[in-house]
Nucleic acid binder design. Structure first.
Length: 423
RNA sequence: GGAGAGAUGGCUGAGUGGUCGAAGGCGCUCGACUGGAAAUCGAGUAGGCGGGCCUAAACCUGCCUCGAGGGUUCAAAUCCCUCUCUCUCCGCCA
């Protein structure tokens, strides 16, 4: 959520920032309602002040046995007025909330300006895409031939956009989860968490999925609960409504979870293989930091994700997303794109974002810089570390052999019971 | 699913209609004492929304907040209703 005080004090700055993201105008209504609400509050507060004073006067008079009927009648009238004013304020609050909850975050100054993904800027590249002396197959063909991925039977169970992993395919998925968690916990200093896969609507509002993106998620029938689209949601919500001590920061959290996405509006995109699924696995990183350190922490977190790809020997590039391609809650985002021979291009496998105080405001998640200081909002960051299904796809494609077998990257073998090749 | 108990500040815990944003304790901050520390003593210590104020801090000030929402009343932490969550016992269950 944007800072309403900032929107009030410097509407032109906020509007310019929103325009860079492709959002036109829109603050006029906010400013008008905001002004209206404050004048209503001023009037109501005045009347309440009168009521409070008069009430305690009645208390005093009663103890002395005096009659107070006149005053009581007057207060009752004032009470009606107050009620009417409060109701108006409340209605306006609902509208203000609706506006604020639907406005995206403001991009950081360092974010390149642009309107779509073609304006994203490459920051660096790692590894050389392998040159094949045979015609490389897409991962769905490799996996199906090895009988480690089964799309037909997944469709029988659950329909399109699901995959059954079998045998060493299932083992590979599990090995990757363990490798990634071990790296983040043992080498990068994250605390491992195993959260619920279903969360309340409040959590979804907290991280920004709701109210705007309800159609992207799976809702549990008959309950105000949603399947998580990413572990960012439960991890970032973990400390919601809390005031943390400065010594607790930064907090590093990592979790493996399944992720569930309705993929509304993506018909016909990435229909083959495991790239775009209704259910997929991901290891996620989340950080809660002070405002002073959050951008340094974003760089570090991005490196943590990159290291996973480096250990697996998968070529990738790092992209700085432009203003027009930023996610709703992000102030700045780096995407990691892994080389996919079947696409002959780099494909997103991780996304690392600094949301600054945008989510913290929605979560009411604060900290005290000093034990006696007023609470401030923390900065929240999240990043995939990394998407597991897409990593399986990348391994199958990048490590395939001419005979259809797939070599297991060295670092993964101890997680595969020593197996070095799938054939 | 059945029966019962509970939800109060950073924590603990008192408070059954007005003097209560809230005793006491712990913790924390500042100060005194000390060569320094511990102990001790003193003072302070909730959050939010407005206004004073052009911006920020500090300060002053009004209002709101005792799980959430509604009601009764001149006045609600306290009385009534609804909901949520937690705990205990019984049943069921991986």
């Amino acid at each position: 959520m944007l800072d309403p005080k900032l929107a009030r004090a410097k509407p032109e700055v906020v509007e310019a920032a929103l325009r860079a993201r492709g959002i036109e105008g829109g603050l006029d209504e906010f400013l008008k309602l905001d002004r209206e609400r404050r004048s209503l509050q001023a009037r109501a507060d005045e009347l309440k002040n009168f009521r409070n004073k008069a009430s305690s006067e009645i208390g005093r008079a009663k103890r002395q046995g005096k009659s107070t009927d006149d005053l009581q009648a007057r207060i009752r009238q004032v009470g009606e007025e107050i009620k009417a004013l409060d109701e108006q304020s409340k209605e306006i609050d609902v509208q203000l909330d609706r506006i604020l909850l639907n406005l995206p975050n403001i991009p950081h100054d360092s974010v390149p300006v642009g309107s779509s993904e073609v304006d994203n800027v490459e920051v660096r590249r790692w590894g050389e895409p392998r040159r094949f002396d045979f015609n490389p197959l897409p991962h769905w063909e490799i996996g199906t031939a090895l009988d480690i991925l089964d799309f037909e039977r997944a469709a029988k169970l659950s329909g399109a956009r699901f995959t059954v992993y079998k045998g060493l395919g299932a083992r590979l998925e599990r090995a990757l989860i363990n490798l990634m968690l071990d790296m983040h916990v043992d080498q990068h200093g994250y605390k491992e968490v195993f959260p619920p896969f279903m969360v309340s609507a409040d959590c979804m509002i907290g991280t920004g999925q709701l109210p705007k993106f309800a159609e992207d998620m799976f809702k549990v029938e008959g309950r105000e609960m949603y399947l998580i689209p990413t572990a960012e949601v439960p991890l970032t919500n973990l400390h919601r409504e809390e005031i943390l001590a400065a010594e607790q920061l930064p907090i590093y959290l990592t979790a493996y979870t399944a992720c569930f996405r309705a993929e509304a509006g993506s018909h016909g995109r990435d229909t083959r293989g495991v790239i775009r699924q209704h259910q997929f696995n991901k290891v996620e990183m989340v950080k809660l930091t002070t405002p002073e350190t959050s951008y340094a922490e974003l760089e570090k977190m991005t490196r943590d994700a990159e290291e996973v790809l480096q250990v697996l020997g998968l070529p990738y590039r790092v992209m700085a997303l432009c203003t027009g391609d930023l996610g709703f809650s992000a102030a700045k985002t780096y995407d990691l794109e892994v080389w996919m021979p079947s696409y002959q291009e780099y494909k997103e496998i991780s996304s690392c974002s600094n949301c600054e105080d945008f989510q913290a405001r929605r979560l009411n998640l604060r900290y005290r810089s000093e034990p006696t200081a007023r609470p401030r909002y923390v900065h929240t960051l999240n990043g995939s570390g990394v998407a597991v299904g897409r990593t399986v796809a990348a391994i199958l494609e990048n490590y395939q052999q001419v005979d259809g077998s797939v070599v297991i990257p060295e670092a993964l073998r101890r997680y595969m019971g020593g197996i070095d090749i799938i054939r």
